[in-house]
Amino acid sequence: MVLISGTMLFATLLMGYAVYRTSAPTWPPAGTLPVKLVFPLLSTVSILLSSFFMHKVRTEFEDLKKAKLNLDTTLVLGFLFMGLQTLFWSELRNSGLLVGSGIFSSILYGFTWIHAAHVVMGLLSLLWLRFVLKVETRNLDVKVLNVEKFWHFLGIIWSIMFLTLFIL
């Protein structure tokens, strides 16, 4: 029961790895309009900040109040990330880059969708943790650690995606 999230982490890690493997053989898009970087950049900031607060949940764990506050901040930033992603998608659509317009947009949409789906799972496990913080104390450190790992993992994947998809 307790270690589910720990295992989830594993599965997803490999999943993410796999997604990147698939990206390798087909890159350079020919003559695509440059994508506006505002929203991806803000997304990056928010998810990295949230990772920082998630880290603090564990390191400042002794004080339950503080832990809750840190967790709440993580949650807010996580939701902010999702909001920014949505804005990013609608901006893409408005600038005429539709899902079906070639491999470049396929990758943009496809990968951000897959990542977003994982963020949703991450948010769910954060909410679960928030709930658990209230009622339970057994093995709490393990649960926090596992959710934290998973959340960092999402941040790392996003950073890699940001670097490879938008910057390079």
Partner: peptide
């Protein structure tokens, strides 16, 4: 959803997907 990861020549302007992928 209409992506074109594996569709060759789907769009001449923005690069095409690759079935062999």
């Amino acid at each position: 959803f209409g992506t074109t990861f594996f569709l060759a020549g789907a769009s001449a302007t923005s690069g095409s997907g690759d079935p062999v992928l």
